[in-house]
Design a protein around this nucleic acid. Structure first.
Lengths: 218, 218
DNA sequence: TCAATAATTTTAACAACGTTAAAATTTAAA
DNA sequence: TTTAAATTTTAACGTTGTTAAAATTATTGA
């Protein structure tokens, strides 16, 4: 009665692969990064340990795939919202990230820690994840200068990474459970706005500072 | 013939305790944080495994002591140099830290990662390490405002943690091997100067920006 | 349709890890 | 010097990641 007639061996394998990865995510989310034990994972997925090694690989490989999926989700958000207003662009970006993290907070926490721990976010390579994501704040600075919001006295490739750093620090502090997702939002945006203020023309700076005061007063 | 006549039991124990901690530091420094294996440690210290458990405790206890020693070293630096010039105070502070880290780079890297990993630097408690160290940049902001360097439009308890965050991010990126100690210096100071620039009076801001350009051009 | 072959899963085990009970040893006190 | 206390060691337990080899399954050819 089951509709398994067209389940060839390879489709079964890929189904199982998905099951393994899904259960791995659940396990990491529920009990943290260290709780990913291959035997537990096998039991949850209804398989034996060597099957996991055959279908995916060891712990390193499983983590690599999960982190890769994380990066893909981040890239979707990055290419999402573009607004003419500079502050709004950053606010939307941070809010989108917070919303994504909220869908499975424990998992994203663990995944970011694992990513940092495995040196995935290194900054030296030109084609790395860091190099990819730092491009956007640099672009935003260039555009803000063209629009007369920034004075342009600080090179975009100095200010951009600094802004990206504000986001990264807030994300890490959140991942380390130093504060919650709302704290992440406020911390990231406060940092970004202060960075922008350092090179903002007076009227833009005034707007930024009032937003900072709103963020930090509540 | 050995001069062990006055070596009572307790002095022997504390000698051994020191040996264990010293070897633990060496082990962590030479092969990283994960390489601290109790059996290796016992072999290097010329002891057996349960002796370590008796004298100090398990892995958790050993790490706790090592991290506590780290914090003490940091506190010594913090209470070191006080200058009237605000930038110089920060520059000296960061340089002192870089010099300290340079004495045993691998060890300090590992210790900071271990500290973050064990939630030692949490930000909620009033008496925690974070609360202690964030006080200094807040004080510096207050003094800079009194001296007419900062406009005071951004509250010190907003700007101060932001400055401390610049140092923390640079430290973490260095600990994660994203750049070397000179990169740490430049990254930390660039961030701190930009933070200050967001609230600086024009003449001070000009000075800060020129220093940022020097830092980022080389 | 059914044997042969290739791929997959499982049984069973290995080595390394942190940890600890209990025996053996050493030191201090009477 | 004998006795009691503290310390060290022997030996083991339970978990971990990982893997070789056996058993099973699915696909392919006649």
């Amino acid at each position: 009665m089951t509709v398994e007639t067209l389940s060839t061996r390879s489709t079964n394998m890929s189904k199982r692969r998905d099951t393994i990865l899904r259960e791995a995510r659940t396990l990491i989310a529920s009990e943290g990064f260290e709780a990913l034990k291959i035997r537990d994972l096998a039991a949850r997925a209804g398989l034996t340990v060597p099957t996991i090694y055959n279908l995916i690989g060891g712990k390193k490989e499983i983590l690599a795939i999960i982190i890769q999926q994380l990066v893909e989700q981040l890239q979707i958000i990055q290419d999402l919202g573009k607004t003419e207003n500079v502050e709004d662009a950053f606010v939307m970006q941070i809010n989108d990230l917070a919303d994504l993290f909220a869908t499975d907070e424990a998992f994203f926490r663990a995944a970011f820690i694992a990513g940092d721990r495995s040196g995935l976010f290194e900054q030296s390579s030109e084609k790395g994840i860091f190099a990819h994501f730092v491009r956007q704040p640099i672009e935003a600075c260039i555009q803000a200068t063209q629009k007369g919001l920034l004075r342009g006295q600080i090179p975009p490739d100095v200010l951009g990474p600094q802004i990206y750093g504000c986001y990264r620090l807030a994300r890490q502090d959140w991942a380390n459970k130093y504060f919650d997702l709302d704290g992440f939002r406020k911390q990231a945006l406060t940092g970004i706005f202060l960075c922008l203020a350092s090179d903002a023309v007076p009227v833009f700076r005034k707007r930024l500072l009032s937003e900072v005061l709103v963020l930090t007063s509540t």
